[in-house]
Design a protein around this nucleic acid. Structure first.
Lengths: 251, 251
DNA sequence: CTGGATCAATGGCCGGACCAATGCTAAGCA
DNA sequence: TGCTTAGCATTGGTCCGGCCATTGATCCAG
């Protein structure tokens, strides 16, 4: 091949790449600040506008946090922290062994996913989805989440056993994340979520106390998203899911 | 609560939200062009700089495609329509004719998931799936993964552009994890993964070097799973996905 | 020592200017 | 007529300089 394809890439993209590399190589460490926009511009020999565009791209990607009047903070990489949870280890041990590996690859919405497997997957994805939602949710997104929450509360008052409001609440948060993969993921998983065993367990452990806890946790998640607090939304979602997992483990 | 939290969000973010809503509501349809930056600026009463920043944010999110000298092309597919005839589409109604912000909840395999969004989701799930696979993969599971790996190598030799072996490799690992949620997740996401944009980027940046890297990384993952090393499999998968993400971010 | 005022640094936003790429159109040619 | 080509208007790309708003640190008064 030998020929390098010449891409007349836009300046902001090239700048973003350079900064990304510098972050990856440890020159700019998480928790520290990037040089001021003006300095970056002169150092790179570009205008401040282009630097700003690059920083916005990095901000959307979640690599930096732009703070007005302060500076541009290099963020810690979120996916790394999801490990090392003893509770998760317990869940993993409880899921059943794998199916026949020669089964044809097919999406089958009638497959019943065991509750622990389902919660294990949600535990990985939903905290990040909530954090993204806190950052990106539009007012329409927030209104949709609020409506789902309202229905969730109504469901609880009506002693619902299928909890459509709860499902909708989580799905709408995934939608508000702006990540289509998260959205599809949640739709698929919650489409599975009400198989026989799951429903049985659900009714078994839906005590008045758990309903109250769940409601207040939902409210906390919603508040954080409304306030635009990524860390708050992530933590609130973790607390919520861990409680649900705990309830099922208590059996 | 009466007090509505003030999200003193930056202009570019508010603009991006508005455009996002307009795309979602079908005002700006996929395949059509947004109004010129200058028009958007005057319509919104903001500067062109802010509009440009918003467009870059949307571009990073994969919702639009900015074309020099031409215009800004809408790339997303609003969840509502897409009046295709996909065999596997299934619409779930989780709400009664509820309140106003009635967002459509539908599993739609025709929705094109932007590469970064897809990889972001995979980055959360696949390392854990690999670790689980390392713990409990049966000999049959490993044989299935090996077969997929062999096909992946053959695909590379044959200059495949759809990479069925690669997809199968990752799906087999998810199957070997024994977590049905992980399996369904990967099947759904990789079913999306080969839409137009993704394929275009894939072919554009599949250099000989990247193929070699990918192959050795796949081999490392397979080795760790074979050896029953959870941490090794998790780390190897992280290394692999981070490389892929890096390639796509560099676009 | 504490609290408030001050101030420099930094990001946020603006408007205009000019350049470069694109696509359309009409003139020119075979 | 039909095709090519040179303009030309449109649109995004980039830069500049300016001014405002927020933040955090510093200094001063009590």
């Amino acid at each position: 091949m030998a020929l390098e394809p010449i891409r007349n890439r836009r300046i902001y993209s090239q700048i973003a790449d350079q900064i990304r590399d510098l972050i990856a190589s440890g020159v700019y460490r998480p928790g520290s600040y990037l040089p001021p926009e003006r300095d970056l511009a002169t150092s790179l020999g570009v205008s401040r506008s282009s630097v700003r565009e690059a920083l916005i791209a990095l901000e959307v990607l979640g690599l930096v946090d732009v703070r007005v009047g302060d500076g541009v903070l290099v963020r810690a990489i979120p996916p790394a922290e999801a490990q090392g949870d003893s509770l998760m280890r317990r869940v993993m041990r409880l899921t059943r062994p794998g199916p026949d590996p020669e089964l044809p690859v097919a999406l089958d919405l009638d497959v019943e996913i065991p509750p622990f497997a389902l919660l294990q997957a949600r535990r990985l994805v939903e905290p990040e989805a909530a954090a993204l939602a806190a950052r990106r949710a539009t007012s329409a997104d927030i209104a949709a989440i609020e409506a789902a929450f309202a229905q969730n509360v109504a469901d609880n008052r009506a002693r619902s056993t299928t909890h459509p409001g709860d499902r909708m609440f989580h799905i709408r948060i995934a939608q508000a994340s702006g990540n289509a993969a998260f959205e599809q993921f949640m739709i698929v998983l919650l489409g599975h979520a009400y198989g026989g065993m799951f429903r049985r367990l659900q009714s078994l452990y839906t005590t008045a106390e758990m309903i109250a806890n769940s409601e207040s946790q939902h409210a906390a998640i919603l508040d954080s998203i409304r306030a635009g607090s990524e860390a708050g939304a992530r933590d609130a979602m973790i607390v919520h899911l861990d409680m649900v997992i705990d309830v099922f483990l208590r059996e």
